[in-house]
Design a protein around this nucleic acid. Structure first.
Lengths: 200, 200
DNA sequence: TGATAATTAGAACCATCATTCTGAAATTGC
DNA sequence: GCAATTTCAGAATGATGGTTCTAATTATCA
């Protein structure tokens, strides 16, 4: 592969990601993907194999970006664990609001996941890993006395997951960034130790 | 319309509801709908007009059932407001788990809502009404001192909505009834006044 | 430059599916 | 019991869209 071919491919995946993100899998037409990536049909099929394979590449790219952001932020001693969760979640919410399109992974989990076994398996794996990372963060928070004592780290991680999934659905239904952040902040407030008359 | 025709139509809507619930809008084929309803193509088109119109009838039926269950439960003095929320939510979660298919309305909001303006409008209206009902319940809970003081009724209602939406996505991805209930219970615990060492 | 190979744009192919049409079967009303 | 209407099952229709093919163009390299 030529040295620039890899860069082109990364660019193509990024462009395709935007199309799939907004339109989902079924409604992303090859024509749109061709236009967005700048590749033509022939090159697109030669490079990736087909629509599904291109999508899987997009999905992996999307997941990897998120996961590494999370791990980096969690590992950064400048952030406490609750701040790390907040930082990553706000990043995701901003992206959702910009596109009015929820989380790429979850959108498609609902859609193509029903038909293509490989997609739903991959999404399940990815979601599990993200939930584990959140549980890790909440475990640290618990040790620091920052977690609502009525809730275990495992429960809290599942709650955070459902919250982000729900926020994604709301984003797709036209909720504003502000509204999405409010919902997320409420969840964080509920997870934190309760200090009456002193909200975050 | 013959006296039995109305009953037949209700039955047909109920049968179609199951198909749309599991398959979504696009992937529910007319053939499946014909088989499920017992109507044939001709009758189906004559009675409802088309796939979209049939779906709108299904959507209204679904919403009406949920809304009236909620209002009845909320009005019943046997339940406190938090119990009413719990009762209705558990009903919905059971239905989701049975079908492995989340909430009919939200599934389709993500899917067909992108294309058919009328569907997304209707879903938005329905969701707003449900959120209002939850806010009403939480206002009552606040008055009884049963709401986490870090959270307002409005915020709590939005959190509950996102929780149910998120739970729906999880259901569609194969989560068990037990797992779904755990996530919901965590949310309720987070919304309730914190009593350490004494979880619900 | 000239012959070979790669790339392009768009047409062709094929499958799917909502909708409509059609001729046969059943039902109704008299 | 028969004519008129309604209902049926399945075949045509028409549109969409993923994939493949093709003929023309461009690039490569001796």
């Amino acid at each position: 592969m030529a040295p620039s071919a890899k860069a082109d491919m990364k660019e193509a995946v990024a462009a395709a990601k935007e199309v799939f993100w907004v339109h989902g899998f079924d409604d992303a037409s090859i024509e749109e993907l061709v236009q967005a990536t700048g590749l033509n049909r022939y090159a697109l099929y030669n490079t990736f194999g087909g629509k599904l394979e291109l999508f899987l590449a997009v999905l992996e790219d999307y997941y990897t970006e998120r996961k590494s952001l999370f791990m980096t932020t969690l590992g950064d001693p400048a952030h406490g664990p609750m701040d790390a969760i907040r930082h990553v979640s706000e990043f995701c919410i901003t992206e959702m609001a910009e596109r009015g399109a929820g989380c790429l992974m979850c959108n498609v989990a609902q859609e193509v996941g029903q038909h293509e076994e490989i997609v739903s398996e991959r999404v399940k794996t990815y979601l599990d890993e993200i939930q584990s990372a959140k549980e890790m963060a909440l475990t640290q928070a618990e040790e620091r006395g920052e977690l609502n004592p009525a809730i275990t780290p495992g429960e809290g991680a599942a709650l955070l997951m459902s919250n982000m999934l729900g926020v994604g659905v709301m984003a797709r239904n036209g909720a504003s960034r502000r509204q999405l952040l409010n919902v997320f902040n409420t969840c964080m407030a509920a997870l934190s130790v309760t200090k009456p008359h002193e909200k975050t």
